[in-house]
């Protein structure tokens, strides 16, 4: 292979590895690409191909990749509660994911010397926010509509479904939320087991 070709290939691959600063539009596009709607220009609820179908069948799912190495262990050791960051969980269907402003409420003053916190301060100044990846999610075909609030009211601990976050740094999937998991608990607590409770 001629040397100039090797050099060109190396240069091109190096260029593609550099993490260039993203414009706002590129950032938005990346979020869109990472969204659960897939990457095709047409949205359809079908699986994208045979490989996708096989992955769903065997329950193989890629671990979520988070944009920030947030440590749950460190924060929970500081006596923080889950609801401090995951707001709305007591009143609505979703447990909110914290935005930049939520983090900077504390980090404007706390641990400002840490490099990650400095990056956050820079991002906030530029008006950028996190694009958190979902850790727990249901397959589209499952048709599950989960609501957090009724479970919180029924005194279900966060750890019942999400594992002990005090042991985890970046959140990982530790509980297998299959239907038996839900139905067992519903039976124990005498909650409704009608299909329409969750599937609609």
């Amino acid at each position: 292979m001629p040397a100039w070709l090797v050099l060109t290939v190396l240069a091109l691959s190096a260029a593609s590895c550099v993490d260039a600063p993203f414009s706002e539009r590129q950032q938005a596009e990346r979020v869109l690409q990472r969204s659960r709607w897939g990457t095709s220009s047409v949205y359809t609820p079908a699986r994208t191909g045979l490989a996708d179908a096989a992955r769903t069948h065997f329950g193989l799912r890629a671990d979520p990749v988070q944009p920030f190495a947030y440590s749950h262990r460190v924060h929970l050791a500081q006596e923080m509660a889950c609801v401090d960051c995951h707001q709305g969980v007591e009143s609505g269907p979703r447990a909110g994911l914290p935005g930049m402003n939520t983090c900077m409420t504390c980090h404007a003053a706390i641990a400002t010397e840490k490099p990650l916190v400095q990056t956050m301060a820079k991002m906030q100044a530029e008006g950028r926010d996190f694009a958190w990846a979902r850790v727990y999610d249901y397959a589209r075909e499952a048709h599950v509509r989960f609501e957090h609030a009724p479970h919180i009211r029924a005194k279900v601990e966060c750890s019942t479904c999400h594992g002990d976050m005090r042991q985890q740094d970046v959140a990982t999937r530790v509980v297998d939320m299959d239907m038996a998991f839900c139905v067992n608990c519903h039976t124990q607590k005498q909650a409704s087991n009608d299909c329409l409770t969750c599937h609609y």
Binding site: W37, Y43, T44, P45, A46
Partner: peptide, 22 residues
């Protein structure tokens, strides 16, 4: 059929309701 929406129309889908497949 599997329902289809041209992007970005999928963003107007109601997240509280399933999208039914074929």
């Amino acid at each position: 059929f599997n329902p289809q929406w041209e992007k970005p129309l999928q963003l107007q889908l109601n997240p509280d309701v399933s999208v039914r497949e074929v």
